[in-house]
Design a binder for these strands. Structure first.
Lengths: 226, 226
DNA sequence: AGATTGTTCTTCGTATACACTTCGTCTGGA
DNA sequence: TCCAGACGAAGTGTATACGAAGAACAATCT
């Protein structure tokens, strides 16, 4: 283990706490640590092969990000997103991504649009090949790209965090709606390319509405219950 | 439920890291630690009379919240909000607080409205007495209360974080616009009481537009430059 | 002068110690 | 049998010390 780390450390020296945080996030999102799971510092330290300090620092950030809940003197547990908070997250996302779409439409360069179109094309191919995992990845990449194009770092980081959480809930649930949503993405990119902020915002809103409906239906079925 | 637990569990013994985080936040917001100021762990540990561990954990969270910037192997410095990010923050706040106003209008109970009215009344008194500091406090309390009434924890926590940052920029700048904005607040509360979500949202938007304009003008004058 | 080499400051990570809380279990008494 | 309190284990909260490595800056050498 020390050998593996040393390679990375020499390269660019990502602090251990950041590596731990990243690993923790993905472990939670992937469901390796299911909601409600108790996360003792010693256990995490051993899982990641580090001492308690980096783990503690990572836990505090994970708490601020809403992935874990820390009870004083009792330790950390993986947060449990309820169907209530799913609706809440989508309500906020709707506003934020609508704003992002508008800003992106107003600010996108030709290169930006080309990048989006490339993602769409890759998505079309992945859809044809029934590669759902890749479709989901590209879905994420597209949304994050639009956020980036919006040029508003606050908007971008907040919406990104929400997006991660929504993904988390999706993984815990079952199906991915990705293939079905692709046509909506095309309309969204078209609107951004047109430079019409209002139109882009409306496209984002209807996309989010559809995604929200699908997610909520999914959650009604009861994630973790089957 | 959380209340019950908090009562039962240790009196209030909030962990040192939380106290440090709170103190650090307010110190930064108040300008005690000006932007660009170097924050070495030892110095903070001494300032707050604790060891380095709680300080480190607080710093990580402060970084996640955007109050400090941490450069690997170089330590933490107080973040420097540029006028660019002021506009970005307001763009996001506008959307979020508009949503909060709408939700609050749809969900506010009579008691909620009474609480808001009480804050308005206190604000009127403070304004008459030219107690600007108190007016600012009540201003904050009112906004946070509306967020709370919205009943969306994501919305509430995100918007609260943004609000704190805006306050930070205000303090660094000069004037408080609070007295002038009070009439807008009254209209906002009226709209919430009416239960008309659309009207509440519009009231919030126009309030935020005015505040944004004032803040931006303020920033143009160059905060820290005079 | 310009490049190289130390020196120092500080972060980063580890390890350890210990007080205190909480929780589960065990035991003794009604 | 059942309950209450004692007891101990587990785990967090905090402090402290130490070593390694990076960064900044000063001193030295060519």
């Amino acid at each position: 283990m020390a050998e593996d780390l040393r390679d990375k450390l020499g390269a660019q020296h990502l602090p251990l706490r950041d590596q731990v945080l990243a690993a923790l996030r993905t472990a939670i999102i992937n469901g390796d640590y299911p909601p409600g799971e108790r996360l003792t510092e010693d256990r995490l330290a051993e899982d990641f092969g580090v001492s308690r300090n980096p783990v503690r620092e990572a836990l505090r950030v994970a708490e601020a990000e809403g992935f874990v809940v820390i009870l004083p003197r009792r330790g950390a547990v993986v947060a449990s997103p309820s169907s209530g908070t799913i609706a809440d997250m989508f309500a906020v996302r709707e506003r934020l991504e609508a704003l992002a779409a508008r800003l992106a439409a107003e600010r996108a360069t030709a290169a930006d649009v080309a990048a989006l179109r490339a993602l769409l094309e890759q998505g079309r191919e992945a859809t044809e090949q029934q590669d759902l995992r890749r479709v989901a990845e590209l879905n994420t990449a597209l949304h994050l790209r639009i956020l980036q194009i919006s040029g508003n770092p606050w908007l971008s980081s907040i919406a990104k965090a929400l997006y991660l959480h929504v993904q988390w809930v999706f993984r815990l649930g079952a199906a991915e709606r990705a293939p079905h949503s692709w046509s909506e993405h095309i309309q969204l990119v078209d609107a951004i390319e047109s430079g019409d902020g209002e139109r882009a915002e409306q496209a984002a809103l209807s996309h989010l509405d559809a995604a929200s409906a699908a997610a909520y239906e999914n959650a009604e079925g009861g994630y973790g219950a089957h």
